[in-house]
Design a binder for these strands. Structure first.
Lengths: 139, 139
DNA sequence: ATTACAGTTGCAAGTAACTTGCAACTGTAA
DNA sequence: TTACAGTTGCAAGTTACTTGCAACTGTAAT
């Protein structure tokens, strides 16, 4: 686990520093998407600076270690890029987030590329559902 | 057209003020998603304030006149909610945006709802593709 | 083990995108 | 025509994030 973490950083050409290890650990212990503020709350006791959290998230994203998730909240959320492909359903009332797995976007991508004259490469996609969770429906 | 615009505002219980009419006109003349800055640039000559643009976008969204589009840019983009259902493909290099129409998210939504114990209502979804446009691939 | 240095960090100041308090104004229904 | 809830402009404020810079540190080469 620790070895794996070091390998992730090494492969990405990133030094294995304390802040990066701590932030990776937070991701490992959190399967739902998480934002900078939340991460900072968990690592500030180790004297890790808020700016470092933002810089780390940016470099992790650039290297493909984490990916952005568009939850239509005020801040940017991230989750580990490793792990099986999935998407999210978000309650627009209370913000609850749940994962879901069925995703047929590859088919859509192929179709879109065959019809587009301007694009030929698709690297990522977002697919999030916005609705109301059972608890909020009852209100 | 003008009548239609007035009806939109009336149905939404929003007064037909000059700023709102001007902003709706900008949307009507722009089929791609647009942000507050871009809208402000087009209406500031009519002495419409930037804060009014933001407030108008917020109320239009709340009333369902426009909807947010998650393009992973620094600011929030919107487009008219009327018009046929479509999504976007975004170049992560230069920011170019193109529409596409094929969308089978309804099927996915049904499946997700049947499998979720926490959600039973889906109101919206996002589905955006991120890749590289032909012009940027050549670089 | 030691060294050299590019990469990384903490700190504090800065920026971009948006929000809000408030007094003046204005569509709209009566 | 009037009354007033809703709307606006302005300026100040907030939030999320970024950046300049000097000090520090992991890493590869010695």
């Amino acid at each position: 686990m620790e070895q794996q973490t070091l390998a992730i950083l090494h492969n990405a050409n990133l030094k294995a520093t304390a802040p990066r290890l701590a932030i990776l650990k937070v991701f490992a212990g959190n399967h739902l998407p998480i934002n900078a503020e939340h991460i900072y709350a968990k690592v500030r006791s180790s004297n890790i600076n808020e700016a470092t959290v933002y810089r780390t998230l940016a470099s992790f994203e650039e290297k493909g270690i984490v990916k952005q998730v568009d939850l239509r909240k005020d801040s940017t959320y991230y989750e580990l890029a490793s792990g099986h492909h999935h998407h999210h359903i978000v309650c627009t009332d209370c913000g609850k987030v749940e994962d879901f797995e069925s995703c047929s976007v590859d088919k859509i991508s192929d179709k879109v590329l065959s019809q587009s004259s301007k694009f030929s490469v698709i690297k990522e996609h977002s697919l999030e559902l916005f609705g109301t969770c059972n608890a909020c429906v009852k209100k």
